[in-house]
Simulated assay, not measured.
Amino acid sequence: MLWNIDLTLVDVAIVTRDAYAEAFRQVTGRPLVKLAPAMGRPDSEIIFETLAINGIVTGDEHLPRFIDALAHAFAARRKRLNKDGRVMAGAKEALKAVARLDGVVQSVLTGTIKSNAALKLNAFGLDKYVDLEAGGYGEEVYPKATLLQVAQGRVKQAYGFRCDGSNTVLIGDSTRDVQTARIAGVPIIAVASGRSTPGELREAGADIVLPDLSNASEVVAAVARLTSPVNRKAG
């Protein structure tokens, strides 16, 4: 199970915007005028577009510097996550319910850089349900579908079984998440808790669309419907 984080499990957009503004100022010496929209994209892509639309000519040094500044700026604001953010409806209960399924491994496929992803989940007590080492993150400059396959490889290395479209499910909230799953050849449970409507998610090709995660039994049933038992000796 690979979970998207923002607007699927948590909403910490206010803190994220402030951290981006601070990171931009540190890297460029200028105030941030406009932040590129997330739209399910990784931080690496958002950083490059943000620099471009604010008139910064980018070089090879900008991405690592910005990622480092973003990590420090977000960490400095970690105490605000509970105050200015929220856990999405049913997220903790859904994670707990899926964790009880036999043989399940839960991780994340997120556009957020790894250190910030860990802080987002930890702020709401969600990190205990996922193996963060097996996930895919926004500082890794891959297309998101390729990043999904990278995460599958990490699961195989750590747990010894092969992941494919029969035993991997992505849960996300955006049409970008749906497109990622389609390209990677895995099923997706789309939740209409973000900025994509149920109709948009269905049109994009989601296998199952839920209004949110508030019905944990419904989430578990959807996972069971889309997967087959894992053969841990395979691969």
Rank of each mutant, 00 (worst) to 15 (best):
M1D: 05
M1T: 11
M1G: 05
W3F: 15
N4V: 12
D6M: 13
L9N: 11
V12G: 05
V15A: 06
V15E: 06
T16F: 04
R17V: 07
D18G: 10
E22I: 04
R25D: 03
Q26W: 08
G29Q: 10
R30G: 00
P31A: 12
P31M: 09
V33M: 12
K34A: 10
L35V: 03
L35H: 03
A36M: 11
P37M: 12
P42F: 01
G55P: 09
I56Q: 05
T58Y: 12
D60I: 12
E61I: 07
H62R: 10
P64Y: 11
R65F: 05
F66Q: 00
I67E: 00
I67H: 09
I67W: 06
D68K: 14
A69T: 05
A73Q: 02
A75F: 12
A75L: 12
R77Q: 14
K83Q: 15
D84T: 11
R86I: 13
V87K: 14
A89N: 12
A89W: 11
A91L: 12
A91W: 03
A94Q: 07
A94I: 07
L95H: 09
V98K: 03
V98Y: 04
R100A: 15
D102N: 07
D102E: 13
G103E: 03
S107F: 05
S107D: 01
S107T: 15
T110R: 10
T112F: 04
K114S: 08
K114R: 15
N116T: 10
A117F: 04
A117D: 06
K120Q: 11
L121W: 03
A123F: 02
A123G: 06
F124M: 04
L126S: 01
L126V: 08
K128D: 08
V130E: 00
D131S: 10
L132H: 07
E133L: 07
E133G: 13
E133S: 11
G135P: 01
G135C: 03
G136N: 00
E140I: 11
Y142C: 01
K144G: 01
A145R: 08
Q149G: 03
A151C: 08
Q152T: 03
K156G: 04
Y159L: 11
F161D: 05
T168L: 02
L170K: 02
S174P: 06
V178Q: 01
T180R: 02
G185K: 09
G185F: 03
P187G: 02
I188R: 01
I188H: 01
I189H: 02
I189E: 02
S193P: 00
G194M: 08
G194K: 10
P198C: 14
L201D: 04
R202C: 13
A204G: 08
D207K: 07
I208Q: 00
I208E: 00
I208W: 01
N215Q: 08
A216P: 06
V219P: 01
R225P: 03
S228G: 01
A234P: 00
